[in-house]
Amino acid sequence: MMQSITGLYNYWAVIILMMAGLYILIARYNLIKKMIGLGVFQTSIFFLYITLGKVSGGTAPILTDTVPAGQLAAATGATAPEVVYSNPLPHVLILTAIVVGVATSAVALALAIRIYEAYGTIEDDEIRHIDLGDIDS
């Protein structure tokens, strides 16, 4: 029981972070605040992937020639020098995701600036009211 709590704690914390981001996205009207929520969500996904790639007792996936004495690869598919590496694949995927995430958030922020120029507000509901002509801007 204790073991499964420590083994799954990372996932739970990641889910709490994801839901915090999602809540900001749904319940806040300010467009930039929504972007911040999306950023929280995004980083939590990075955390999920890196968690999946971690091997306990492992080291960063950089090839070494030396063989640490006490650290024999019992479990992962044996590499020639007996060092345990964490999984490099999630790292690669997340490297791509970080850069793409910043690029997309730059576009979103540019849109927010344009919306502010056009409407004088970045509050979601006020923009909708102006669009529908409920209140004169």
């Binding site: 083994g7 799954l8 968690t51 091997v55 306990s56 590499t79 490099p88 694949l89």
Partner: peptide
Amino acid sequence: GTLDMPHYGSATSPAQTHEQVAVRFLE
């Protein structure tokens, strides 16, 4: 949904043991 997930640091999870992906890259 996480209750079935491999535990943190598990060396035997599918992501770690698939021969064509991570293991091959490492080797």
